[in-house]
Amino acid sequence: MSTTKEHDVATRPAPREGPRRPRRTRGSGRFFAGLVFLGPGLTYLIVLLMIPLALVLSYSIFQRGRFGGVVYEPTGENFTRLLDPLYLDVVLGSLKLATIATLIALLVGYPTAYMIAMLPRKWKTIALVAIVLPFWTNFLVRVYAWIVLLSGPGVVNTALIDLGLIDEPLEFLYNQGTIVTGLVYSYLPLMVLPLYAAIEKLDPTLREASANLGARPARTFFSVTLPLTVPGVLTGCLFVFVPSFGNFIIPELLGGGRSIMVGNLIRDQFLKARDWPFGATLALALVAVLVALLLAQAWAARRYSRA
């Protein structure tokens, strides 16, 4: 058996006699190999994503117990509560902040990525490391650093006062502006990296051709470079938007808790209000919005790459 099989594989004779059996063994072998390779990933997905998600989904149709906890009586109340203007406002507010942060990150990130892509090779690596470097420090510490910089008795105010530019410390902190600043700062690398990858890949001869045909640099950029890097733009925007939308640390620390985003609302349902069912419902709504965005992004990227 085994010799025939080896023979089979090695010489590939015309499939006349008994080609089926060896092929089936090969097929099931591939099945097992697939299982070995996919198994860890699948287990991970099922245990850490599918099951928790199913739990969240099931919590969302139950009620909060009188003392917290979950009462297993089905209700649709959590979903109607989502439509309460109070929560809708929070969701819309978060959408607004996340969108602004994403747009600013794009405006700052695109030129940065472009510049890096145009650098000589040695400098490229250095620049990319510099972009990723902040990630080596804890997120919380980086956010706190902004408080040290911007607070009333902080570094910036002290410097400005010492320089004689102002008399009273300026109030930088604890408003929506600082929330956006924090979001842009935290997630900018996630915008730069996919943009860099997209711009880097671009064939330089396309730009040369455009110039040879008489297009000015601006025209070349808007008609050639930008359209060809749209998939990178979309990926970068998604990478910034998703963590911004559900963030709760930045609004709490840099916003001083004075405005809340969906992330805070969800966190509070679990940790303060002991209302797991409604927290689960909010979390699901968030996931739904993000899945819709992902689908839209995939669709748009496919359309652009085809065009």
Partner: peptide, 21 residues
């Protein structure tokens, strides 16, 4: 003291205050 189901009124109150801009 614990307010049972009415404690949700306080949850809502704090969300309302926090959400107000």
């Amino acid at each position: 003291i614990d307010l049972g189901k009415d404690s949700q009124k306080y949850t809502r109150l704090s969300t309302e205050v926090a959400a107000k801009n």
